[in-house]
Design a protein around this nucleic acid. Structure first.
Lengths: 339, 339
DNA sequence: TTGTACGCGTTATCAG
DNA sequence: CTGATAACGCGTACAA
């Protein structure tokens, strides 16, 4: 059962290719009789239009590229879900690439996508100004780019992130309200968003007349889980040995926050009695954690959907867009047992 | 900065299109001088070949389609990771679609992918024989299909799964070895793999001269997390009320297993003292769970890689393949604190 | 060694 | 209302 083309149908029906084409696109210039004839015949032989050819003709691919650091990260996979839903709704396909938090791989991903042909790009960049020129090239070539999640990046375009500073501020305040005084803030190196979170943390301390103590601050390399786990463990152990007081942890990312719980359990430190934990996390099983985790939840699916929406706006824009939006979604805190 | 085509370069350099084309593909029929001239010029103006046109010409899309039930499922996202790595290595792009465990959406996904043009399909089907005819059509049309994970499906093709029966057998044995006698097996409805797991469970019981008790068996609808959570909770509560003994849980899927922990915590049932828990789970933070979870770990990334490998074999096969492999990967148990 | 011409499957324009 | 014809950008047999 080979694939039928317009040409085949035309021959079978003794019609011209263009008549067939027009019939299938329900053109007003074709008589109802012929339309019906063609459409029925096409359905019967389950004709499928060749999108590749169509794309060649129209110059559009109906595909948007997506670059993230890691597909299987909890947070990212939820955003991808949102991207997926929204783009599918608009009849756009998506091609996902991973940068693995490596500038070179990000560069490669951008090049591959460009080569392959996409109508637009949705990216959560590796670092503050990773591959700026390349992305600008893309824009110049008429392929719009929208940034999401990690929006601390100089590229001029729409950006969809969360209000990280406010969220961190709120989480810190939550801990302080519970009477915690020595909060260890654990964050990741070289990711723009964590800087904002740090700022929110500092600001909240300041507003409560508390000093920011560098000893109560840890930056992890953001890589494998057991590396993160180890640096957290080492840090906490060393604090204990030096008798530096600590009664709470504020985690800046999903992995950091959830892994912290494991570290405390392993070290036999009671949570929340000795050390409370709260942090950014969109984990789907908060109640199965030890203990049920208090989280700063980000609107991941919404972020993905809005990203697609903004990108499509740019793709469909008739004139070059000059004014860009910097959208900051609201996170919210859910207090469970860990605080 | 518009996009250059072969034609543009040819005009700029006063050469014919084919000369330029051949130069760029490093053809032996072109003089080194011209080649260099063209290549340098192309690089300078960063010429990017239009893959769409190339695909139209060659009839290949260099894309493989992937259909899974949910991108953001822990297990699936790890398999996707493997698929991603392997396909990227082979210069293939992937397009991911979600069936959301709905036969209609699966049908739609298959049709969209076919329409869009793919060279092959990797699918974890919704149910025992969902969309068989459609998939056969695909194969007939020269687009090979490979099944992964849920391989209990009549389609004749390569299949890559895990040895579910053996894994469930081992996990059950592990519980029995620990002295547990009343094991509740919780599984999902209508998924082929869970049947095999159930069989492994039953077989192990039988081998130990224990009866299979339907009261110690629960089938959940496999949907939203809180629905699964509720049915588990209700079942356990009802068992307690009826004084049906239970001292262990064997979870058949990632979500079921991890959510069970949350249910026990919520109900205030001590794990593992009162009820031990083990189950299929590739959760990345086993130590953060309450308590550290004993798991049956599947080789997810490997499964993805092998799936791609097998699919590419079919895509590149010169002659129709008649003999298909049914690959069963080995899982392994990691005992932590929950058993 | 280089160039010409055609076809891949579609859509769009224009003529009949 | 229908049909012929020209593109879209690339690869390739064939001619020069």
């Amino acid at each position: 059962m080979e694939r039928k083309t317009l040409k085949d149908i035309a021959k079978d029906l003794n019609l011209s290719i263009s008549t067939v084409s027009k019939s299938l696109s329900d053109s007003y210039e074709i008589s109802d009789a012929t339309k019906k004839l063609v459409q029925d015949y096409a359905k019967k032989h389950n004709y499928v239009p060749n999108k590749v050819a169509r794309n060649l003709k129209t110059g559009k691919t109906n595909t948007i590229g997506v670059i993230v650091f890691n597909i299987s990260n909890t947070f990212i996979s939820q955003v991808l879900n949102g991207i997926h839903i929204a783009s599918h709704e608009q009849k756009y396909d998506i091609i996902i690439m991973q940068s693995r938090d490596d500038i070179e791989q990000e560069r490669n991903a951008i090049e591959v996508l460009r080569m392959r042909g996409i109508d637009g790009l949705l990216i959560s960049p590796v670092a503050h100004n990773s591959n700026v020129e390349l992305l600008r090239d893309l824009q110049q070539a008429g392929i719009p780019v929208v940034l999401f999640d990690r929006v601390q990046h100089p590229l001029q375009t729409h950006k969809v992130g969360t209000d990280n500073q406010a969220a961190a501020y709120e989480a810190t305040k939550h801990l302080l309200d519970q009477g915690r005084k020595h909060i260890l803030h654990i964050t990741a190196k070289n990711i723009g968003i964590t800087e904002e979170r740090l700022n929110g943390f500092k600001k909240c301390l300041m507003d409560h007349n508390l000093p920011f103590d560098p000893k109560l601050y840890l930056e992890c390399d953001y890589g494998k889980h057991n590396e993160i786990e180890n640096s957290i463990k080492n840090h906490i152990q060393s604090m204990r040995e030096k008798h530096i007081p600590i009664d709470a942890i504020l985690g800046a990312t999903d992995d950091i926050t959830t892994l912290s719980l494991g570290v405390l359990a392993t070290l036999g430190i009671a949570c929340p009695e000795e050390i409370a934990v709260i942090g950014f996390s969109n984990i789907h099983i908060p109640n199965s954690l030890n203990p049920a985790l208090s989280t700063v939840v980000q609107p991941t699916v919404e972020m993905g959907k809005i990203g697609v929406e903004k990108l499509l706006q740019l793709i469909h824009a008739k004139y070059p867009v000059e004014e860009f939006e910097n959208i900051k979604l609201k996170s919210h805190i859910i207090a469970r047992k860990s605080t």
